[in-house]
Amino acid sequence: MEHGEGTNFKFVRWEKYDVISTAYDYVYVTFDAKDPVSGSVFSFQTLLNEDSSPDCPVMWSTLACRIKCDDAVHARWDDKAVDDFYKDAMPKWLSDEELASDDKKNYVVQESEWQENGWLHLFTEIAFYSKTNNELTAPPPLEIEKVVVVTKEDTEEGHEKLKAQNAIFYVSYKYNGESSEWARDHKAVIRKTTDGKPGHMYLEVVAAD
């Protein structure tokens, strides 16, 4: 979990969880997070808005992600601030040639990188849960096999694309759990966008197999 200027906080414990249903479901989550460098523990606030559909089972917008405070939340998503490249229908799975290519737009993520960035494994878990309709309650034993990042953001180094503000992730992974129904290779397309406001992120996930 990143906050501020790249600070990686670690989840400690749940504190509070509320759901308010109007036209959409708003989920208010308060939890403790730890700064692994200083050892300090903070109370953290997150506000999620869920707007899923049968064609895209996960469509979440994070409207707040911050150390607990009394400041007002910017609860309105600015869709106009997102590049058209990341809008409309979710993209299809890439061809084998595209999955293998490292170029200006595509980046094949190294194994060491997805091991160092726990949020990428979290994205994969979200993709798996959406596929199984949350039937499995225990944390699933998933093994990431390949990740390709596609983004329009121009970076000097290819590995910097992994942390692009707007990107599409093509993830191949395997379920190694006890459920024989899901014990096979899986694919997911995950699109992450931001509108430039602090704490805002939009996440869309579809299964590609």
Rank of each mutant, 00 (worst) to 15 (best):
I126P: 00
D209W: 09
P198L: 04
M90Q: 05
E135W: 08
H200S: 02
E157Y: 03
D55N: 13
Y175S: 10
V189D: 01
V29C: 10
E2R: 01
G199D: 10
S61A: 13
W93H: 10
K174Q: 10
T30C: 12
D78N: 15
E145K: 12
D51P: 06
Y129A: 10
P91V: 06
Y86Q: 07
W77K: 03
P91E: 08
T155E: 03
D83C: 10
L203R: 02
A100W: 06
E156Q: 10
D71T: 15
L122K: 07
N134A: 11
E181H: 08
E97P: 01
H74W: 05
T137I: 15
V150H: 03
G177E: 09
F85G: 01
K146L: 13
E98H: 14
D55P: 01
Y175F: 15
V27L: 14
E145S: 10
T132S: 10
L122H: 07
V147L: 02
D25F: 09
M201P: 01
Y175E: 06
E5H: 12
L162A: 00
K34V: 05
D102G: 09
K10S: 09
E5F: 08
E125H: 05
K192C: 02
D96I: 08
G158L: 04
K105Y: 13
V12Y: 07
L142G: 03
S95E: 12
F31V: 06
Q115N: 12
P57K: 11
T7I: 06
G118R: 07
T62E: 06
T62C: 15
E143C: 14
R66C: 11
F9H: 04
L63Y: 04
Y170R: 01
K34D: 04
K87E: 13
E204W: 00
K104T: 02
S21I: 14
A89Y: 13
A207C: 14
R66Q: 12
V73N: 06
G199P: 10
K80N: 13
R191M: 08
K16Q: 15
N117Y: 01
F44T: 03
A23C: 13
E157D: 09
A75G: 13
D55A: 13
G4A: 09
W14A: 15
Y17G: 04
F123I: 05
A167Y: 00
Y173S: 08
C56F: 06
P140T: 09
D71P: 06
K92A: 14
R76E: 14
E111A: 11
A164D: 00
F42I: 05
L63W: 04
E2G: 03
E125I: 03
H186A: 08
A100F: 05
D96C: 10
E204C: 05
M59D: 07
